[in-house]
């Protein structure tokens, strides 16, 4: 059983992807199947960027055991009023400056869904969002 935690700063795009990069290195060292590593990296990067683009700050908590990798992202931010709507491909509330960088195309949450085995999102408006991802190692 291994446990890792990372902090994410809202609005700071220069550090976006730092946690994903760290986790990629860790999973490689653990000899996790490269196909699984690829999926996790995509899912975590998108979830990480969502905190940077939308929230004030967040924590990423990662637990790895022999069966699965669990990732929990807890942010303080505006929250998501309608999660079903947010999950739709192409729907985005990102600011114009974020879109100009090529983010905010409404592909992030669909990417997370397609690249994790289990996804649970809970959110409270004006408080924050919790995203939980599970990826099974033996499939």
């Amino acid at each position: 059983m291994m446990h890792f935690e990372f902090q994410v700063e809202g609005g700071n795009f220069t550090k976006a992807g730092a946690a994903s990069s760290q986790l990629k290195k860790i999973l490689k060292q653990l000899n996790v199947d490269p196909k699984i590593v690829k999926r996790i990296v995509v899912a975590l990067y998108e979830a990480e960027v969502n905190i940077v683009a939308h929230a004030y700050k967040g924590d990423i908590i990662i637990d790895i055991d022999t069966q699965k990798i669990g990732i929990k992202l807890i942010d303080e931010g505006p929250g998501i009023p309608d999660i079903e709507q947010a999950m739709q491909l192409g729907y985005s509330t990102a600011s114009p400056s974020v879109r100009e960088m090529g983010f905010g195309a409404g592909m992030g949450l669909p990417n997370i869904k397609n690249n994790s085995d289990e996804l649970r999102i809970t959110s409270e408006v004006n408080k924050g969002t919790i995203v939980e991802l599970i990826t099974y190692l033996n499939q």
Partner: peptide, 18 residues
């Protein structure tokens, strides 16, 4: 030019035009 598109669909070894 959409980062999440590349994230979701580019493959290892690709040259990315943007």
């Amino acid at each position: 030019d959409l980062l999440s598109d590349v994230m979701g669909h580019a493959e290892a070894g690709n040259a990315w035009i943007t």
